[in-house]
Design a protein around this nucleic acid. Structure first.
Length: 900
RNA sequence: GGGCCUCUAGCUCAGUUGGUUAGAGCGCGCGCCUGAUAAGCGCGAGGUCAGUGGUUCAAAUCCACUGAGGCCCA
C-alpha cells in the first residue's frame, strides 16, 4: 500500500550541524568570490554607499561589534537583492593610545621608530584576528582590501584633509590644560594617571567684590599655586547663596555650605543677613587676590554643594571645568608654569619657583594681604604619574584646534543635522544639543603612535607654525613611506623648500612633536576612503553605529566634512543601542557577565547569533543572554523544519513543468498565496525601514501559524494520498514551491548560511542565493475575499469542540470526527462550495445542512465519525474493501502513475 | 548634576489619531498523534501595561513627578 502513497524522503537534514556547515559555506563563498561577483553583477544598478565605521584594532570582537557588523550585513544583502550597486568596504582604526600603552607595557624601547613599528604590527595582528571573526559570522564584504587608518595612503589622506581644513583657516593654535608630569616633563593621558593619596594645603580665601562695601566671595582651594592664574569665580546660577556677616564683613557662601565651611574655618560667630539666588550675582567683579586686576564672577554648572563654599576659584589654564568656563566666557587660558612645573616670567614674583614649593609662599602672601581665612591640611586622592609616581599638575599647554565655534560653521552643522535622516528620530536632538554645547576640538596629542601634525617649531623664538606647501610635500612622502618618516627623517629630507621661521626669520627649525587626535583619523574616513580610495561622492548614503558615536564618529566626521565639503558626510544615520546582560547591566570583563560572539558561534553557530540580531529592536539597548540564544535555537529549528517539510514534499516537483496556473489552484492554495503575498509585502516594507525585528516576528508567526498549524496540516492528506502528478497535488506543490522560493529570498540577509544551503539544495543552476534579485509577488496573489475568513472562525470553534471529544476519549485524531454545519443564508453556502471542507477541517466528513429556523449565522455539530477507518487515508468510510481501503483511495491507486 | 533614551506576560516583540474583557510567537502545563518523528496538532495557565498623581465620559496611549536602568558629557 505504501508504494501508493507519496511518503518522500529528503536528505535536507532536520539537524542543522551549523558549526560544521557554516565554515564550509564560508569557504564556498570565499572560493567563489561571491562578494566580488555580487558587486560586479550590480555594477549598472543604482549606486548607494554604507560607509563602515572602523572598529579599533585591539582585542577580539565583542557582541557590540558583532551586532554592528551583522546589521550592516543584513542591509548590504538587502540592497544587493534589490539590485543596487552597493559596495561594502570594511575598515579599522589603528592609531592611538590603547595600542601605544599596550606596546609600552610589553617592551619599552627608546627608539620611537622601532616603537611605532611594533604598534603597527600589533594593529595588523588584531585586524587579521577580527577580520576572521567577522568573516566567520557570515558577513560578506571586501575583506581582501579593507581600509585601515595606518595604511600609507590613508595616512597621507588624513594630512590632505588636514591641509584642506588648514587652508580654509579653521586650524588654530591655542592652549588647553592637560595632565602634566613636571619631573618627566611630559603630557599624560587620563589612562596614564594613577590616583594616590597626597597631602595638600586646604585654604579658604576671601576675594573682595568691587564696588560693594565689605563684600567678599569666599573660595576654597587645595592648590594655592594656581591662584596667580585665577581669572574668575564661578557661582551656580540656580543655587541659593547667603550673605553672611562675620565681624564687619559680608561673605558670599552657598546656603547649604555655610554651616560646614564656617566650622572648617573655625568661625562660630556669624549672622545670615540675606539670601540670594546665584543668578543675582550676574555682572559682579572682584579684586584678584595676588595681582593688580579685576576679574568677573561667572556662572558655572560644575559648581557643587559637596564641599567648599559654592564660590569656585576658576583658573582656565589649570582645570578641566575651569577651561570650559574660560572658553565659554572668553577668558584667557592662562598658565604661567613651564614644563618643569616652575613659574614663568608671566608671574615674575615667583619666577623659577616650583609650584609645590610655592604653595606655602602663596599662602603666606595671602595671609599678609589679610585675605586668607584659614589654612589646614587635607589628604585626598590626587593624580600621580604612572612612571615616576610623582604628583601631577594640570597645566595649559599650547595645542592645535579646529575652531568649531565659528558661528557660521556651527550654524551650518546644525542645519546639516536637521537635513540628515536620523534613525531613531531623536538622534537629531541628541546630536544638535552636543553641537550647540561643544567648545573647540583639540586635535593635538603629545604622543607617538599616530599621524604627525605637520607643524614646525623655531628654536630661536619658539614659534610653532604650519605651512600648506610643506604639507603637500610631506603628504606625498608619507604616501610612499608612511608617517614613520616624520619620526625618522630630518626636515630637509621631507621637503626641498627653504624653511624659515615666519616670525623671526631664523632658520633653526625643528619638527613639531604632536600627533593628531585619532578621532581626526577616523573622522576623515569619508575623505580617505569614500572620496579618495573609492572615488565616490560625499555625502554617503548611510552611517550605522552605536549610539556612543553621536559624541564620537558622527561628530568627528561632520566637522571636517562641513568645512571641506560644505555638506554633511552622510544623508542617513542609524544608531543601535548597547548590550546589557540578562539583568540589564552593562557587560564588562570585571563583572564577568560578558558573552563573546566567538563563544556563541562555537556553541550554537553564527546563524543563531544572526537570528538573534534580527529578533531585537536594535535602536534601543538590548539584553543578551544564553536564555535569549536558546530561544533562538528553538526559533531556528522551527523555521528549518517548516522549510524541510516543503523540500520533502516538493522533491518530485519541477517548477518548470509541473507548475499549476493560479486560476487552477485550489481555494485553500490561493489562500496560502494570499497570506504569502501579505507577508512578503510587509517584510519588504520592514526592510525598507530597517525594522528587522518586524521581519523576524512576521516570519516566525507566518511559519508557525499560517504554515505549520493551518496550511501544512490541511494539505498533508492531499500531498500524501493524491496521485503524484494529479492537478490537486501539483496545486499544493506549486504553492509550497513559491513559499520556499520567497522565504529563502527574504530570509537570506538574516539566515544567510541556511538559506544558501536551501538554495543550493533546491537548484543547481545558480551559484548563490545572493545573486538573486528578489522577485515581487504577483498582484493576483493579493486577491482574497474577506468573507472566506468566516471559515477560519468556524475552524477555531471546531477545534475547541474536537478537544472536548478528545478529553472524553471519543476521538484522537480530528479525522476520527465528522461535522454537521447548519446555515441559513445561501451566501454562506457559496463560501462552503469554494472549499474542500473535509480537508479544511481535517475530518472524515462534513455535511452542510440548510436550516431556515437558525438564529445564528451558522451552527456546527461535531461527533465521532461513523463507518470504518480506511487504512490508507485514515478517514472513516462506509465503503471499505477487503483490504480495508475506501473507494476514493481505490480510485487514486488506479490513477497512480509512477514518476519516470 | 546635564543632554538623549528605555521600562507592556518568564523571553522577544505588537498595540494606528486616547474608545469594548491588552495581543502574537516562543517558553511553560495538560492532552492528542506516530505518514514532517530528536518532528507535528490541540487546549490551557500567565500582565494593577515600572510607580504615584493629574487631564478626560474614557489613559498602556496625553501631562507632571518618582523609581529602576542605559549611552554620552560633567
Amino acid at each position: 500500500m505504501k508504494e501508493h502513497l507519496n511518503l518522500l524522503k529528503t536528505d535536507f537534514s532536520m539537524k542543522a550541524h551549523l558549526s560544521e556547515k557554516e565554515p564550509e559555506l564560508n569557504r564556498y563563498w570565499s572560493e567563489k568570490e561571491i562578494y566580488k561577483k555580487i558587486i560586479e553583477k550590480n555594477k549598472t544598478g543604482k549606486k548607494m554607499i554604507l560607509h563602515d565605521g572602523p572598529p579599533y584594532a585591539n582585542g577580539h570582537i565583542h557582541i557590540g561589534h558583532a551586532l554592528n557588523k551583522l546589521l550592516k550585513d543584513i542591509i548590504n544583502k538587502y540592497y544587493w537583492a534589490m539590485g543596487y550597486h552597493f559596495p561594502y568596504l570594511p575598515g579599522w582604526d589603528c592609531h592611538g593610545l590603547p595600542i601605544e600603552l599596550k606596546i609600552k607595557n610589553e617592551n619599552d624601547t627608546e627608539d620611537i621608530f622601532e616603537f611605532r613599528k611594533r604598534c603597527r604590527e600589533y594593529a595588523k595582528k588584531y585586524i587579521d584576528i577580527q577580520r576572521d571573526e567577522f568573516k566567520r559570522l557570515g558577513i560578506l564584504a571586501d575583506w581582501e582590501d579593507p581600509y585601515t587608518t595606518m595604511d600609507y595612503n590613508y595616512e597621507a589622506d588624513i594630512l590632505k584633509a588636514f591641509n584642506e581644513i588648514y587652508k580654509k583657516g579653521f586650524i588654530t593654535r591655542g592652549r588647553k590644560p592637560i595632565h602634566w608630569c613636571p619631573s618627566c616633563k611630559t603630557a599624560l593621558a587620563e589612562a596614564e594617571v594613577e590616583y594616590q593619596d597626597h597631602t595638600s594645603p586646604s585654604i579658604y580665601v576671601k576675594f573682595k567684590v568691587t564696588g560693594k562695601e565689605n563684600l567678599f566671595a569666599v573660595i576654597w582651594t587645595t592648590t594655592p599655586w594656581t591662584l596667580p592664574a585665577n581669572l574668575a569665580v564661578s557661582i551656580h546660577p540656580q543655587y541659593i547663596y547667603h550673605i553672611v556677616r562675620v565681624k564687619n564683613e559680608k561673605w558670599i557662601i552657598a546656603r547649604d555650605l555655610v554651616e560646614k565651611s564656617m566650622k572648617e574655618m573655625e568661625i562660630d560667630k556669624y549672622d545670615i543677613l540675606e539670601e540670594k539666588k546665584g543668578k543675582e550675582f550676574e555682572g559682579m567683579t572682584y579684586e584678584h587676590p595676588l595681582m593688580d586686576k579685576v576679574c568677573p564672577i561667572v556662572f558655572g554648572e560644575h559648581v557643587t554643594l559637596e564641599q567648599g563654599t559654592g564660590c569656585v576659584h576658576t583658573a582656565p589654564g589649570h582645570g578641566a571645568d575651569d577651561y570650559q568656563i574660560g572658553k565659554l566666557y572668553g577668558l584667557e587660558i592662562f598658565a604661567p608654569i613651564d614644563n618643569k612645573g616652575c613659574y614663568t616670567d608671566e608671574y615674575p614674583e615667583f619666577e623659577g619657583v616650583n609650584v609645590f614649593d610655592a604653595n606655602p609662599l602663596i599662602v603666606q602672601k595671602l595671609n599678609k594681604k589679610g585675605i586668607l581665612i584659614k589654612e589646614r591640611k587635607i589628604t585626598h586622592s590626587y593624580p600621580h604619574c604612572w612612571r615616576c609616581h610623582n604628583p601631577l599638575i594640570f597645566r595649559a599647554t599650547p595645542q592645535w584646534f579646529i575652531d568649531t565655534r565659528v558661528p557660521e560653521l556651527k550654524g551650518k552643522v546644525i542645519k546639516f543635522a536637521k537635513d540628515t535622516r536620523w534613525i531613531p528620530k531623536w538622534g537629531e536632538i541628541r546630536f544638535s544639543n552636543m553641537i550647540e554645547n561643544r567648545i573647540d576640538w583639540c586635535i593635538s596629542r603629545q604622543r607617538s603612535w599616530g599621524v604627525p601634525i605637520p607643524s614646525r617649531v623655531c628654536e630661536d623664538c619658539g614659534e610653532e607654525f604650519i605651512d600648506e606647501n610643506f604639507n603637500e610635500d610631506l603628504i606625498e612622502k608619507i604616501r610612499e613611506r608612511s608617517s614613520d618618516i616624520w619620526f625618522k627623517e630630518k626636515i630637509s629630507e621631507l621637503t626641498d623648500r627653504i624653511v624659515k621661521c615666519p616670525k623671526c626669520g631664523s632658520n633653526h627649525i625643528v619638527k613639531g612633536e604632536n600627533i593628531l587626535d585619532v578621532w581626526f583619523d577616523s573622522g576623515v574616513s569619508w575623505y580617505a576612503v569614500v572620496k579618495e580610495k573609492m572615488g565616490e561622492d560625499i555625502p554617503v548614503d548611510l552611517y550605522l553605529e552605536g549610539s556612543d558615536q553621536y559624541r564620537g564618529w558622527f561628530q568627528s566626521s561632520m566637522w571636517p566634512s562641513a568645512i571641506i565639503n560644505g555638506s554633511a558626510p552622510y544623508k542617513k544615520v542609524i544608531t543601535h543601542g548597547f548590550s546589557l546582560d540578562e539583568n540589564g547591566r552593562p557587560m564588562s570583563k570585571s563583572v564577568g557577565n560578558v558573552i563573546s560572539p566567538n563563544k556563541v558561534v562555537k556553541k550554537y553557530g553564527a546563524e543563531i547569533l544572526r537570528l538573534w540580531v534580527s529578533s531585537i529592536d536594535y535602536t534601543e539597548d538590548f539584553r543578551f543572554s544564553y536564555n535569549a540564544l536558546n530561544q533562538m535555537v528553538d526559533a531556528y529549528k522551527n523555521i528549518r523544519n517548516k522549510i524541510r517539510f516543503i523540500l520533502m514534499n516538493t522533491q518530485d516537483f519541477d517548477p518548470k513543468n509541473d507548475n499549476v496556473h493560479y486560476s487552477k489552484l485550489e481555494t485553500i492554495d490561493k489562500w496560502a498565496l494570499y497570506q504569502l503575498s501579505v507577508l512578503i509585502n510587509k517584510i519588504d516594507k520592514a526592510y525598507k525601514n530597517y525594522e528587522f525585528h518586524q521581519i523576524h516576528h512576521l516570519i516566525i508567526d507566518f511559519v508557525t501559524v499560517i504554515l505549520s498549524s493551518l496550511y501544512f496540516d490541511m494539505i498533508k492528506s492531499r500531498l500524501y494520498t493524491d496521485p503524484p502528478g494529479s492537478r490537486a497535488r501539483r496545486s499544493a506543490q506549486t504553492v509550497l514551491y513559491s513559499i520556499v522560493n520567497y522565504l529563502t529570498q527574504r530570509l537570506s540577509p538574516i539566515l544567510s548560511f541556511t538559506m544558501e544551503e536551501v538554495f543550493l539544495y533546491l537548484t543547481h543552476e545558480r551559484e548563490s542565493i545572493f545573486f538573486k534579485v528578489w522577485e515581487q509577488v504577483p498582484e493576483e496573489w493579493g486577491k482574497w475575499d474577506d468573507e472566506y475568513d468566516l471559515l477560519f472562525n468556524m475552524r477555531e470553534k471546531a477545534e475547541k469542540e474536537l478537544e472536548n471529544l478528545r478529553a472524553e476519549k471519543k476521538i484522537g485524531l480530528s479525522l476520527d470526527a465528522q461535522i454537521n454545519i447548519y446555515y441559513k443564508n445561501d451566501s454562506i453556502k457559496a463560501i462552503f462550495d469554494k472549499f474542500d471542507l473535509e480537508e479544511f477541517f481535517i475530518v472524515s466528513k462534513v455535511t452542510v445542512i440548510k436550516d431556515n429556523t437558525l438564529g445564528e449565522v451558522y451552527k456546527i455539530e461535531i461527533k465521532k465519525a461513523t463507518g470504518e477507518k480506511c487504512a490508507r487515508c485514515w478517514k472513516y468510510k462506509s465503503d471499505l474493501d477487503e483490504n480495508g481501503i475506501c473507494s476514493d483511495c481505490r480510485t487514486q491507486i488506479k490513477n497512480w502513475k509512477k514518476e519516470d
